[in-house]
Every structure is written in structure tokens, then in C-alpha cells.
Design a protein around this nucleic acid. Structure first.
Lengths: 151, 151
DNA sequence: CAGAATCCCTAAAGATACTG
DNA sequence: CAGTATCTTTAGGGATTCTG
């Protein structure tokens, strides 16, 4: 197990974050949580960041590395990341052209929190799947019981 | 600035995570990163978790708290969270009925990594917005320069 | 090789109306 | 109050084709 530190301070910090957030205008652009986290939520973004941790990768390399992505989505996701300064794009004017994507300094700073989330996901994947099964079972029982008895 | 610790260990850990992930079958359900992180990426999920940090909230409370969510989306997001064991749902059979959503223990454990991500987002929101402006400017120049000279 | 452009299609999200 | 049901709109994303 990792450190199961209670971190009441952390909780309070989140609570504070939320308080600030809720006080903000709905304006998506000015709310970091929505503006930044939404980006990270985009389908392939985190996966690509992970793919770039070890070393820079070329387009086709990433394309092969993520089996079920389309070139279009790959391009889009890389654009997002480039736009936000998370990755940089280097074009080598050879023939045929080679393009390399590398984690920008800003991107490197997000590895820590990202790794924390990933670790949490891995640690609790079992629990979550169990919870889903439990939920499905409860749901099935609800449907099965025709609204009559069965307490 | 916070601690800008280099954390090479953290980076390696992510790299390792990715290596494991890429070796996995595409099977979404067996990959924690995709299975769990995708959920967290769902539009309102993190926001709702944040809304539940301080104390349990009722449906209508959450509805008011998140200004631009629809009842339908709220219900769905809460279902997701309930399904995964992140929140629990308590029905008080009064008339009219009151339903309270509260962070489950499992949900509480994700506050730490989530807070880390949020902190990162807040710390770097300015940088990201700047990067976007830079990107937009560079893009505009590309369009402006009719593809001829300009080094 | 690395993309841009196009078409298509599904899933997510909003609005509205109805119900226990 | 706390939903569900239905309809509609939209945008994300996939497949394909074309280009520098």
C-alpha cells in the first residue's frame, strides 16, 4: 500500500478550490478547472503525454503506439497539446519529412499530478470494477423484482 | 512557486505505467488508465466530486451549484459516480422525497490526486493561456504570410 | 512521412414535458 | 423534489482520400 495519509489539509484545499470555482463566472475560459481539466479529459491527451514521457516520438511512432487512434484524432490531440504548450513539435525538413513530438517543460511539470492520478486509477481499478458489478447486480434485481414484493 | 522538484522517479514511474499499458490489449475495460481516467474526463464528473467535498449535497443543490448543467446530465454524471463507488446516494422517503449525494470512502481517496491535478491546473493556467495565445499568433502569421518568403 | 480535407456516424448533452 | 422519457442538436471521432 502507499501512504494512506488522511490529508485533511488536502481535502480542505480542494474544498477551497471549489469555493473559488463556484464563485467564478460560468465563463469557461477563466475557470482553470474547466479550462485545463477539460483538455486533459479529451480522449487521447493523457495517453499521448504518457507516450512521450520516455523520449520524443515521431508521428507514425505515436500512431503505432496507440493502436486504436485515427490519424485525424492523433493530429488533433497533438495540436491541443502543442497549443497548450504541453508538447513541442519539431519538423526536420528531410524528404520525406520527419516530425518529432517532445514533452515541453510545462508538460514535464504535469507528470507528477498525472502520475498520481494514474497510480490512483491503478490502485483502485479493482474496487471500481467491483462497485460497477455491485451496481449492475442491484439494478438487475430492481428490474427483476416486478415492483411488487421482495422487500 | 511550489517545489519544482525534478522527480525523476516520478517520471520513470509514469514511463513504466505506459509501458505496461501499451503491452495491454486494446481492451478498454482492462486498462485502468482508460477505464478510470476516461470516466474522470466525463464532462461534469470532477466538478461534482469537488462539489461534494465539503459536505453531502442534495440533487437540487448540485443543480444550482453547477449553473450550466442540465438535470439529465446531472443525473447521468451522478449515476456514473455512484456506479463506480465514488459517491453514495441516500434517499429519504419523505414527501416530497429528498435525495442526498455524499462522497463515498473510495471517492475520498481520490481527492488527493485530484487536488494535485487541480493545483497544477491553477498554477499553470496562465502559462497555458499564454501558450495558446502564442500558438494563435503564430498560426495567424502563417495564414498572413502567403507562403512565400519570411525566412 | 505527416498531415489536411472530406464525409459519415455515433454518443453526449440540452431542452422540454411528464411522473412518483 | 428528484427524477424519467423523449426529442433534437451538436461535436467528437473514425474511415477514407489526397497532397507536399
Amino acid at each position: 500500500m502507499k501512504e494512506t495519509k488522511p490529508s485533511p489539509a488536502g481535502d480542505l484545499r480542494v474544498a477551497e478550490s471549489f469555493r473559488r470555482w463556484v464563485a467564478m463566472p460560468v465563463d469557461q475560459a477563466s475557470c482553470p478547472v474547466r479550462d485545463v481539466l477539460d483538455r486533459l479529459g479529451e480522449k487521447w491527451v493523457t495517453l499521448l503525454v504518457m507516450a512521450l514521457v520516455e523520449r520524443p516520438r515521431r508521428f507514425s511512432e505515436l500512431f503505432r503506439l496507440v493502436p486504436d487512434i485515427s490519424k485525424r484524432s492523433l493530429t488533433q490531440a497533438l495540436r491541443s497539446l502543442e497549443q497548450d504548450g504541453i508538447v513541442t513539435r519539431h519538423v526536420f525538413p528531410t524528404t520525406p519529412p520527419a516530425v518529432e513530438y517532445r514533452l515541453a517543460p510545462l508538460g514535464a511539470t504535469m507528470l507528477e499530478p498525472l502520475a498520481a492520478m494514474i497510480a490512483w486509477a491503478e490502485d483502485n481499478h479493482g474496487r471500481i470494477r467491483a462497485a460497477r458489478r455491485r451496481y449492475a447486480a442491484a439494478e438487475a434485481k430492481r428490474s427483476g423484482a416486478s415492483g411488487s414484493a421482495s422487500s
